[in-house]
Design a protein around this nucleic acid. Structure first.
Ligand SMILES: [Mn+2]
Ligand SMILES: [Mn+2]
Ligand SMILES: [Mn+2]
Ligand SMILES: [Mn+2]
Lengths: 219, 219
DNA sequence: AATAAAATTTAGGTAAATCTAAATAATTTA
DNA sequence: TAAATTATTTAGATTTACCTAAATTTTATT
């Protein structure tokens, strides 16, 4: 199955949006890919033709097992390149997503596997996301609780689900990175903002949106 | 100037074919890019519009200085990725050209310069070709003599100008690599084949075509 | 259940990068 | 130099991946 770059980007986005949901809507996919719903409908027909998705008019989209396999390969490449950029080329975690967005489209199993080996077969990427292995098997995300939902108050940062440069830069300035331990000082009901504190640093408040992006586990 | 992948491939090929020639012909470029002359004419109009080439109907193509600058950036990326693949991921010299053909299109100066640094700012790639620096300055190829033209008989292999997998694999089996020293045993006039010998190995004969691809310097 | 609103699809484009076949220009050969 | 050959360009399609505007279907709201 030879996929174009556009097709790969669709497959990857469908995989991401499918998580938890029963089907991916045309509008959601258009928003995720920064394109128009009409374009999504066009592509849906093509991907159905290629048996990568299940799709019926007005019924939303699901990956077939073929499609899932393809998605996992793309995600594997994306996350390995992110590791490479951070660990070997000293990029910061907010810089690597965009570059990996292009590097992920170089389709060579040999390259992918050699890269993985070169990096010591890493299990998680710079944002805390698990990396599928050569067979496409991916460890469950180690945490499924966001700081927003978490009940506990002594927490460790395990992953960041929003990869936007702006958010990751914000977290940099606040000293929040993977492995950071923090205490919840206060949860404000009226806007769901949270005041948190990292040892030896002044406390600060984050919005609901930020709290939803920070994945944590209780210490 | 934002170039598409197709435009970058054209620019790179024009740069390559321009060497020595006064202008690049439509047919030569079509052959190099494995496309049709009519497509080349179309693209020539577009690249002229973008001021990357000088082009008049029936007069052939030349890069402008803008175009040359672009070409050198692409070549820099191509050759740095080839180095990476060979030196860090243990690829063999015949495997890297195709992969670099894709990796070269990831346009990020920061990535390119970090990669160069990571590799120790290499000056030549795995095929013996010089790597342009960040400013686009490239050392003259260290040798311009092919084994075919060379007069001397004790020679060192400095580069291989044909990057086809088949030729490079052939050279592997014969023990010819960068730095290999060899003696010319005999030059056969009737077909321009050459019998050569590498120390401690049986002599063997190469065709004119192969001899033209091996760049050498006298020891 | 009827109507309004929202989501999705269809119809009919466009732009990029190709192609084939035909026309034209340049070059070579006789 | 006229004819033949070769090189190049033009004309007219095709495919991919988009788009806008209009039509249709689904879902939510009276
Ligand atoms: Mn991508
Ligand atoms: Mn990531
Ligand atoms: Mn290329
Ligand atoms: Mn090379």
């Amino acid at each position: 199955m030879n996929l174009s770059i556009a097709e790969e980007n669709y497959i990857k986005s469908i995989y991401k949006l499918e998580e938890g949901q029963e089907a991916v809507s045309t509008n959601a996919l258009a928003y995720e890919l920064d394109t128009k719903p009409a374009s999504v409908t066009d592509m849906a027909k093509k991907l159905k033709e290629k048996k990568l998705i299940a799709y019926e008019k007005y019924q939303g989209i699901n990956l077939t097992s073929e499609g899932k396999k393809a998605a996992l390969q793309i995600i594997r490449r994306h996350r390995l390149w992110e590791c490479f950029l951070v660990e070997k080329l000293s990029f910061s975690w907010e810089e690597v997503h965009e570059l990996a967005e292009e590097l992920e489209h170089v389709r060579s199993e040999k390259l992918t596997n050699r890269l993985s080996e070169f990096l010591g077969n890493p299990q998680i990427d710079p944002h805390g996301d698990p990396i599928p292995d050569a067979q496409g098997k991916m460890g469950k995300p180690r945490v499924q609780t966001s700081l927003h939902k978490s009940k506990a108050n002594r927490l460790e940062v395990m992953a960041v689900s929003d990869k936007s440069t702006a958010l990751l830069e914000f977290l940099n300035t606040k000293g929040v990175r993977l492995g950071t331990q923090l205490d919840v000082i206060e949860r404000y009901e009226f806007d769901n903002s949270i005041e948190i504190k990292i040892k030896n640093q002044p406390a600060f408040t984050i919005s609901e949106q930020v709290a939803k992006s920070i994945m944590v586990k209780p210490i």
